[in-house]
């Protein structure tokens, strides 16, 4: 069972995770803008920029994050932003939120000049996460775990980051046992997806370059 302190931590993380939302004026464009590759590229770029800002607001609320060295805060976010955004995108596509937008968003991604070499693995990853039937609690905790990953480049005080990540991993592990009693491997499979997420991190810079050229 989760201790009352762990329950409190879980609700706090869930609450700040659910506050994340990209401003209405951007999601409205998703519906209104015309469908040229150029327009889609610009719209997706604007959405990604806004998504990073929303992600930073979530990160600032993570227990203990503001106590970290400022440059380590930057290094953690730089190292995890792409992975955290892929997780959030997987949730959006798998839970079809908000209704109807997900299909339109997928259409725009597929018509934005991005090469299929990157689009196919991206949507395969979303599907593979979908098969895990993750709950909102798991998405929010896994995002917090991804952000507070100590072994990112340029982190000076890894130990402090580890101390912040550990309680979140403990809650996530217990949560998996409680929410997926039929699948004792569920927690291990979640962590396995984090390894796959890292590969996207590496390919992302390459993808951006080829996308801009296209």
């Amino acid at each position: 069972e989760l201790t009352s302190e762990q329950q409190g931590l879980l609700h706090y993380i869930m609450d700040s995770y659910n506050r994340q939302c990209i401003p209405q004026y951007i999601t409205r464009k998703l519906l209104q803008e015309d469908f040229s590759a150029e327009e889609n590229f610009l719209l997706l770029t604007e959405m990604a920029t806004s998504h990073v800002q929303v992600l930073v607001e979530f990160t600032k609320k993570l227990p203990g994050f503001q106590t970290l060295d400022h440059e380590d805060q930057i290094a953690l976010l730089k190292g995890s932003a792409v992975e955290a955004m892929f997780l959030r995108s997987a949730e959006i596509f798998n839970r079809k939120m908000p209704h109807g937008h997900a299909d339109l968003l997928e259409e725009r991604i597929r018509n934005s000049g991005m090469s299929n070499d990157y689009i196919t693995p991206m949507f395969n990853f979303y599907k593979s996460l979908g098969e895990l039937k993750m709950t909102q609690e798991e998405y929010s905790l896994l995002t917090a775990v991804v952000i507070l990953t100590p072994d990112r480049q340029y982190i000076k005080d890894k130990e402090s980051v580890e101390k912040l990540q550990e309680p979140l991993l403990d809650v996530l592990q217990k949560l998996c046992q409680v929410q997926h009693p039929e699948n004792p491997q569920h927690f291990a499979r979640l962590l396995g997806r984090l390894t796959e997420l890292r590969t996207f991190n590496h390919h992302h810079a390459e993808m951006l370059m080829s996308w801009r050229v296209n």
Binding site: V52, Q73, L77, K78
Partner: peptide, 21 residues
């Protein structure tokens, strides 16, 4: 516009600012 900023610039600005409102 913000979209021309690199990832690090966006992060630095967002850490200092407050995009909640």
């Amino acid at each position: 516009p913000a979209s021309n900023l690199g990832l690090e610039d966006i992060i630095r600005k967002a850490l200092m600012g407050n995009f909640d409102d």
